[in-house]
Amino acid sequence: MARMKFLCDTERCIECNGCVTACKNEHEVPWGIQRRRVVTINDGVVGQEKSMSVACMHCSDAPCMAVCPVDVFYRTEDGVVLHDKDACIGCGYCFYACPFGAPQFPQTGTFGQRGKMDKCTFCAGGPEADGSDAEFEKYGKNRLAEGKLPMCAEMCSTKALLAGDGTALADIFRERVVRRGGSGAEMIGWNTAYGSGEQKRQQTRGGDK
């Protein structure tokens, strides 16, 4: 059985925000809600800038599910983590538990009155009938029920953002790394995490003068 996942290739992401716009347009996401966003580290540093498209990662062991006091979260057969807005009490526990900042709350209410939580649904709708008006109004379009992948990944111009079965995504990414010349530890980002020998020597000397 497929386990649906997202994967963002930081070597390909160009920070165009096309995925963010595609998501908002497809689901008519309310103002102030960001189901997907692009995060950039080392912004403006030549050769070190990296961008990544981030949303709900539909975790296999989702922390939001663990902390929700009213059990609004559930997992589909495809491994997609969805939620029932009708049961949500707006406590915000999921927001604090999620390491990706995926749960979103309307900005119109006063403190302590967060309203119904909203997040990325992997374009899989919600507990309402597939394709119904009620489902679209609460959760957006159900593309998975139509045999389609999430719109954010479909619209990525550089194919940095991938969506689909986790095993297939891992195979695609592995092939990309091999084509880039990576091997051994480099395939899992060793040099990115710890730096090459030359980089370490430069750091010891205080870097380039």
Results as ranks from 00 to 15, higher is better:
150 P>M: 09
83 H>D: 13
110 T>M: 06
65 M>N: 06
136 F>D: 04
137 E>S: 12
140 G>E: 14
147 G>N: 14
88 C>Q: 04
118 D>I: 03
136 F>Q: 06
134 A>K: 10
68 C>D: 09
72 V>A: 04
78 D>C: 00
83 H>E: 12
86 D>I: 08
103 P>D: 01
116 K>P: 00
149 L>Y: 03
92 G>P: 07
67 V>W: 03
123 C>P: 05
109 G>S: 12
149 L>K: 15
153 A>R: 10
145 A>W: 11
89 I>Y: 02
152 C>P: 05
149 L>F: 12
146 E>S: 15
112 G>C: 03
142 N>E: 14
96 Y>T: 12
65 M>H: 08
84 D>R: 05
127 P>A: 00
157 S>K: 15
148 K>V: 07
105 F>E: 04
152 C>S: 12
106 P>W: 07
111 F>V: 05
76 T>A: 05
155 M>A: 15
99 P>A: 03
66 A>Y: 04
134 A>Y: 06
152 C>A: 08
145 A>V: 10
135 E>V: 12
67 V>T: 06
99 P>G: 00
81 V>W: 02
85 K>A: 12
143 R>F: 13
98 C>M: 04
147 G>V: 13
106 P>I: 10
143 R>I: 13
85 K>D: 07
140 G>H: 07
140 G>D: 05
143 R>M: 12
114 R>K: 10
77 E>M: 10
120 C>S: 14
138 K>H: 07
84 D>M: 11
144 L>W: 02
74 Y>C: 09
82 L>C: 06
64 C>R: 07
92 G>F: 00
137 E>L: 14
102 A>Q: 01
69 P>W: 10
155 M>K: 14
148 K>T: 11
125 G>C: 04
154 E>M: 09
140 G>T: 09
77 E>S: 02
96 Y>H: 11
146 E>M: 15
120 C>W: 06
99 P>Q: 03
116 K>C: 02
121 T>M: 08
158 T>P: 09
102 A>K: 01
90 G>L: 01
78 D>W: 04
78 D>K: 02
80 V>F: 02
73 F>D: 00
155 M>Q: 15
78 D>R: 01
130 D>W: 12
119 K>P: 05
113 Q>E: 03
100 F>S: 11
92 G>R: 01
111 F>G: 04
136 F>V: 01
91 C>W: 08
81 V>L: 04
72 V>Y: 00
104 Q>R: 11
76 T>G: 00
102 A>L: 02
127 P>Y: 01
128 E>L: 06
77 E>A: 07
